[in-house]
């Protein structure tokens, strides 16, 4: 048998607790990470503007932001476009494309990947994730999830 005092104490405690919780809801929603916007997935430069596809006629490779803002490297290898995540699978540095050796090279710990993104030397434990890449009608670089 609870006393009147005990009963009221519990009720007040519940209300005070609920008040705290009621503030928590909006705060969590406020802090929720932004969802990836739908629409076209194209390679963007650091300023957020699209990268033109014809740059690959002059340069052997180009790095930009791809799907989900992932740093992505697109190379022209034997006339064919290939796109990989530029993030080294070892510790997250960005790889560079060495056209002379036909290899990706990570400057941090000298990891190396071949032209298919497969780790061939150094510490990287996994191949670079690969994307499908195509030139869009307006001369931009379109990207899609999944193997080429």
């Amino acid at each position: 048998m609870t006393t009147r005092r005990g009963f009221l104490q519990r009720l007040v405690g519940v209300f005070a607790g609920l008040t705290g919780l009621s503030f928590l809801g909006p705060v969590v929603a406020y802090l929720a990470p932004k969802k990836e916007k739908g629409g076209r997935k194209i390679l963007l430069d650091p300023n957020g503007s699209p990268v033109k596809a014809d740059i690959l006629n002059k340069e052997p490779s180009v790095v930009g932001f791809g799907i989900n803002g992932e740093p992505t490297i697109v190379i022209k290898y034997e006339g064919e476009l290939r796109a990989f995540s530029a993030v080294c699978t070892h510790l997250g540095c960005l790889v560079k494309w060495k056209p002379a050796k036909a290899e990706f090279f990570c400057p941090c710990h000298a990891g190396r990947f071949d032209a298919n993104g497969v780790n061939i030397a150094g510490p990287p434990p996994e191949p670079l994730p690969r994307y499908r890449v195509y030139v869009t009608g307006d001369n931009l670089l379109g990207l899609e999830e999944g193997k080429a």
Partner: peptide, 11 residues
């Protein structure tokens, strides 16, 4: 909540 807290206080 105010009513309950007040009743509790009075008790």
């Amino acid at each position: 909540g105010a009513l309950l807290a007040w009743m509790y206080h009075r008790e």
